[in-house]
Design a binder for these strands. Sequence first.
DNA 1: CTCGCGTCCTGTAGCGGTATAGACGGCCGT
DNA 2: ACGGCCGTCTATACCGCTACAGGACGCGAG
Lengths: 359, 359
Amino acid sequence: MAQRVTLQTIADHVGVSRMTVSNAFSKPDQLSAGLRRRILATADRLGYVGPDPAARALAKGTTGAVGIVLTSSLGYAFTDLVATRFLGAIAEELTPTGLALTLLPSTEGGGVSPARDVAMDGAFVYSCDPTSAALDYLVRRRLPLVHVDQQPTDSASCVNVDDRGGARSAARHLVDLGHRHIGLLMSGLHGPHGLIDPADITIDGHAAKERLLGWRDALDAAGIDPIVVRQPATDLDQARAGARLLLDRPDRPTAVLCFSDAIAETVFEVAEDLHIRVPAELSIVGFDDNPIATRLRPMLTTVRQDVEAKGRAAAAALTAAIADARSGIPHLPRRIVFPTELVVRESTAPPPARLSVTE
Amino acid sequence: MAQRVTLQTIADHVGVSRMTVSNAFSKPDQLSAGLRRRILATADRLGYVGPDPAARALAKGTTGAVGIVLTSSLGYAFTDLVATRFLGAIAEELTPTGLALTLLPSTEGGGVSPARDVAMDGAFVYSCDPTSAALDYLVRRRLPLVHVDQQPTDSASCVNVDDRGGARSAARHLVDLGHRHIGLLMSGLHGPHGLIDPADITIDGHAAKERLLGWRDALDAAGIDPIVVRQPATDLDQARAGARLLLDRPDRPTAVLCFSDAIAETVFEVAEDLHIRVPAELSIVGFDDNPIATRLRPMLTTVRQDVEAKGRAAAAALTAAIADARSGIPHLPRRIVFPTELVVRESTAPPPARLSVTE
DNA sequence: CTCGCGTCCTGTAGCGGTATAGACGGCCGT
DNA sequence: ACGGCCGTCTATACCGCTACAGGACGCGAG
């Protein structure tokens, strides 16, 4: 096999030092234009594309890529429009900086854990299990980090949305409409599924925790004790089973608050199956303002968050953190919280008049 | 600032050679269990996470990450369910191998082009401009490559679906229903938009080219000359304008073949605006069998492709190519083509009876 | 007793770049 | 004529790790 072409190969051919060839590629102002042209020409002739990224990474200490750890199931994360729009916004914002985005599975594969073993200049931590080993590696590597939709930390920049406030206004909206019998539909990969005691809910994510708190802020204030169901996020059939648990019971709630619009959609489907009219007999509120919200009929009342802004802010925070780390400036972590906004559409209405309820 | 902890630091503390410490991390069977425990313990005490990925990449020649170049606009790619499901399948399939997936913008940013400057072990090329500089870099770097939805090459593995066959059966379906006046709705970022002469269509992607060929196979055979409109893929409003161009004209076609289900959706919307009944007055056929196909009312007749299988096959092909490259075996490129299947649902029907047409 | 072999550990030589300091000639101002 | 400075190019020392070729030692077989 032919010897690999390196800077030295080119240097020998042109008759200059290796350093000069390096400069021809990386510091054009360090040598005369004529020589540079000659070097680049022979480099091209020899099939040399550019300085080897791995070697450059070692020598310079920068890799040109940042990572992002997501929830355990990458496959699932990619079916969720909210997550993908966020990712897209990050990628888009990163493009002009020349940084690539590396998707890091939080699990180990073949004895290697990407969060520990892949070279990168910094990373995002996006709605991922705070106890995961991947996150721990990232922290111990002292990488510039930005947490998104995570429990805020002091040590790194955090980007969040006002989940609690949004959830609170969603719940208040239902209360104001007159609902007193309300179901909460949570979602999560792990942990208990099905009907749940609202007291001892172990919620996975920070966002879930906050949204639940927000709902209960408003519900507690109105003296309402919700029925809580937790459904798995991955399997659509199982998810529908969760919704059915809430709707297919004698004391069916007149309104459901959903952890996300995707979940709200399953409620729509189950309601249709059960011939429950929305919103006449059942009000449904989502969260996120996913594009599907306006595609549903009736259109979904939901809580809007600007995931694109979240992505852009996260990208900006990370590039800033990386720049500070390079220049040796002690980085001042940012704490960004985006507002949420209740968007009332067609899926909520006053509860049906209670005709034959003896009380 | 404290000196960085390296293998040597640990070696000095424990009183062994640096090589032994390296083995403690990378080749556990090369030293006694006791010593290894001691080394790992002091490493942990010193805050050492593991061998530096950049240095290891240089020494070993592997990085633990593979890249993927997508269409120019990463942000757009992430709003498309077909693309994201494909990405998800790749990521999922890669996870157990310990490989991370790096998203490579095909454009340059800040003087660096990730496809040239980011270290990786191989890469996917997914429905991206074959003349792009990014692709050229990848090829010149001699990286193991897998092309997906691209014009097949001899030099690398290719994964495709039978776009042409699927399009052909879609068009034939309309012909069989009795349609003679058919519109074609293409999509593309660049190039001419609006009404287009079917003769000189410059299509971006390989898939687009194939689908067009398939449609015309069936249409030509029936002696039908379609009306062709090409709409931009990014902007939803502009996309709808494209659909309107087709529907809002005196000789409106009785059926539309769409490049994708996402485009078909815009046709639904425009048809609703124009009070055109689907399928009574207008038949619509999509492509991909995107999840939205079954959410549309009436449910969309479309051509199914299994994007998840495509993703898994691509991942398998790339890991195989990388393994071969490592072992020095000359890699035998694979050529994989997945079948497509017409799924007839509710959006297609015979054309309306022509009442007052003089012929 | 010696040879051969396996286990466990070490020393050296890279991997392919970049940082940094300095060599060298020419041009400037004085 | 001379010191200083700028524009170019070079020499050397790493960056942190792994491959590879041994060396030392213990043990069973001949």
